[in-house]
Amino acid sequence: MNCEQAQENLGPYVDGELAPDACTALEVHLEDCDTCRAELATVRKLASDLAPQVDTLVPENLWTAIEQRLDEAGEATPPTARRPRWRVGRAPYALAAAVVFAVGLSLVGLVWTGSSAHASTVDFSVLLNGLPLDANQAFGKFLALYDAREGSLADARQYAPDLSFDIPDLLPGGFHLQAIYLLRFGKLEGVAAAYDRDGEFLGAVFHRPVAKEHFGQHKDYPCVVGKHDGHKVSVGAWRLVHLTDPTTCHCVLSRLDERTELPDVMAAVAPALPEGTGRHGH
């Protein structure tokens, strides 16, 4: 691979859209080429400069303006008998999404009481599908699917004594803990945590390795994080990375780079990962 070809592939590489063999070829080239490595840094910088820095507030009167025009156009049926907008049980997704939207992630577990007894599988597709629109919200839907309720770290340890995980208040890179959740994947206990770094979401899910993972239409590729082999699914700038030790699969959803920021974060939430396993999880 020459520099021109390498540089054409840098964008797709950073975007998680490059096929695995092309990734390997590019990485080989990058090992030896300062120019292309510098170029890669520039592409990454541009990507992070373009990422939303602060939450944009939607003007409060926008809906009023839309509603007024709907009324004028006579498009909508008159407001129906005011049934509660978010109903427990009937529409779990809408409920979770709405609650997350309205008051943030921390309440999801408290109000969601529906049941969705899935066999011992962990289906990430609802999470992955929702990422392009709103990761925080997508994570809320995922939690709702598995009957999440909020708890403390002590609650989580007591609830899932067989899992090895840590949920520090502050992760490397400056992510602050927002909430801890106790989940149920069929017969198996799971634990999840939500973090925030100035509006940038990071989520962690811990489950027993025996639980089968599903990723919908998304492709799951092998990857290396620090000294550990794992696997990952990329959706846009988001990646869901899994590292497994004998008792626990540690899944972290973030926009962090696998080579730079992610290894420290994984080490912080997965303290019992054996050094340099060289083995592929699941």
Partner: peptide, 27 residues
């Protein structure tokens, strides 16, 4: 994933459903 039921209600012009879709996507 936006709920199928919500879509159907939006299609039928239900104002509550439209508001819900707006809340979920406007940001």
């Amino acid at each position: 994933m936006i709920e199928h039921d919500l879509l159907e209600r939006c299609r039928a012009g239900n104002r509550d459903a439209q508001r819900e879709l707006y809340d979920q996507t406007s940001a």
